[in-house]
Amino acid sequence: MATTSDTSGDALPARAGHKAFSLGRIWTIATSTLTQLARMKVFYFLVVFVILLCIAGFLFIELSYEQELKILKDVAFGSMSLFSIILAIVGTAILIPRDVEDRTLYTILSKPVPRYEYLIGKLLGVLLLIGISLLVMDAIFTGILYLRQNMLIAEQISFLQADGATEADIASVRALVEEHGARWGLQGAVFSIFLKAAVLASLSLLLSTFATSTLFTIVVGFAVFFIGHGQGLARDYFLKGAFTGPIEKLVTVALAIVFPDLQLFSLVDGVVSGDDIPGGVLLKVTGIAALYIVIYNLAAHFVFAEKEL
């Protein structure tokens, strides 16, 4: 007969000491969240992504090579942004309610798992999914962009050769097209998309710790997304201090302080135009994203630690 335990009620078994913080527990929750979300057929979006890129990349209408490559980059980054934003807000919003509904939350928290580790693990799982998805999309996009760029270079070279251009002219045109095509600087844009999604996911997790429904979290999440893109205006207004009334001041203060400035992470446009994100800027933006993630997680911990389940 299989036994369950060799312990009697009095004899204490030798147990490993309890760890107040365990990366192993966090990783366990993160990987299970990753597989849980991945099975929600999110990767069908990748198929749509590839189709969109093929359409955008091979429009074959009479545009200049700069315009053609710009459109391809815009569609790719726009799709990556949209996908990661939706996953960050909606994917995160359903996590805690789903665990409550399935009673899984009780079985997890009745194990020696601190509530803050549960939250961190859930967030890490979402970020893993967003990160992996962006990497895959980036790889597909870079491949298509490279292919299209080379087709355009070949086209330009054939025009030049028909006009009797020199090797130097051909090299110059090749360099010009490559400047608008696949280059390492584009990865900075992908990273900035990830940072924005990470901030939104942290915010969504915070909202879900006290929200009364998943829909509330999603609606407020998207509202904050849009307000956050205009937050910079409120901030500049507040810092200038030129108010016409107390209500105006209060609203401006609230907007500037409470809402995140998501415009800081909107660095795709510059990259599409041909500039690389300066290293110093990228580092600072990463630091600010990390700050937002820590703040939102801390706030979520305070709410969730006392939440009655």
Binding site: D236, V258, D261, L264, I288, K307
Partner: peptide
């Protein structure tokens, strides 16, 4: 209790907001 916790969360976000305002303005 839960209302108190939400207010604490809002306070954390607000304090952090005040600190990050000038940093973000400079970066922008």
């Amino acid at each position: 209790r839960s209302r108190k916790q939400i207010l604490i969360a809002l306070a954390i976000i607000s304090v952090a907001g005040i600190i990050r305002l000038p940093v973000e303005a400079k970066l922008e």
